[in-house]
């Protein structure tokens, strides 16, 4: 399968990328790692007239610490492989490293990028729910300047984000979660498969109890969601199997999972409850996976 013809630009700077994207209008599309976009082009599900390849803009790669806030600043074009192996990410945002290890397979992780995954906003993608659980922020640059969007405001609908057509996601800011337990529990049909449902859990414990829990849900609606009812039930509750199982019963509240070849909405709701229990217990360090 061969994509429809398109023009190709490979800017060296972010300014040039934004200008090229703006001039290309609605028929221009950003190419990050291409691991979602190229299959879409090959299947002719999209027909952009211009691809703007961000692959040669050095400032969009790498991980650093923001000295003012201590948050991690991850360049949007940092590959999954580099995220997984980055010492700052492993030390201060372990949930992101752990979840990224479950994305696709090693070859895809060599090319695919964090920013590309988030901008693509596939409801079955693992990383949007992780950024939602981490209370991350997306920094976008366009012709009208730079703006920062909380993860909660970034994902709008199926494959749709708050990015304007001429805006580029340049970096992802992740607050440190030092001292939090974490786990990403994913259910998929085959080894490299998309998540039928995934649950990203962060748990901060205070002695034997849960001080705070943050839970992101993958593929339980057209956007990633927080399991707010379960989070509320866990706050101050015991961290043992019974209390966690009880709180996890509310994991699917307020969700609207899709029906597709992999699962019915009712089955996805069941998975959300089971996987949330497992993820929270693993994150709290009080249960087996």
């Amino acid at each position: 399968m061969i994509p429809a013809a398109f023009d190709y630009a490979r800017p060296d700077t972010l300014d040039e990328a934004v200008r090229t994207l703006h001039d290309g209008g609605e028929d221009a599309k950003v190419l990050a790692g291409g691991q979602s976009l190229i299959p879409i082009l090959r299947l002719r599900l999209a027909f952009p007239e211009l691809l703007v390849d961000l692959g040669r803009i050095p400032e969009l790669r790498g991980v650093r610490e923001d000295p003012a806030t201590g948050s991690l600043v991850i360049g949007a074009m940092t590959t999954h492989h580099d995220v997984i192996h980055d010492p700052l990410v492993r030390r201060h945002a372990g949930l992101l490293a752990a979840a990224t290890e479950t994305v696709a397979d090693p070859a895809v992780r060599h090319r695919g990028t964090l920013g590309g995954s988030l901008s693509h906003a596939d409801p079955a993608g693992d990383l949007p729910a992780v950024l939602l659980a981490l209370d991350g922020e997306m920094v976008a640059v366009g012709p009208r300047g730079r703006r920062t969007l909380p993860a909660r405001e970034f994902f709008l609908d199926y494959l749709r984000t708050a990015l304007a057509e001429d805006e580029v996601l340049v970096e992802i800011r992740v607050p440190r979660t030092d001292g939090w337990g974490f786990h990403y529990e994913k259910f998929s049909r085959v080894a490299q498969g998309w998540a039928v449902v995934g649950v990203a859990a962060l748990v901060r414990r205070d002695d034997g109890r849960v001080a705070e829990a943050r839970i992101g849900l993958t593929n339980m609606g057209t956007t990633p969601l927080r399991a707010s009812a379960t989070e509320a039930a866990l706050a101050g509750a015991g961290a043992g199997p019974d209390a966690v199982a009880h709180a996890a019963e509310a994991a699917a509240e307020g969700t609207r999972p899709a029906s597709d070849l992999s699962a019915t909405p009712a089955y996805r709701a069941h998975l959300a409850r089971v996987l949330t229990r497992r993820a929270v217990l693993a994150a709290a360090g009080t249960g087996r996976r």
Binding site: G34, A107, H110
Partner: peptide, 11 residues
């Protein structure tokens, strides 16, 4: 790095 060459453009 290993890559899937059906998922990379020659350019």
């Amino acid at each position: 790095d290993s890559v899937k060459s059906c998922n990379v453009l020659a350019v």
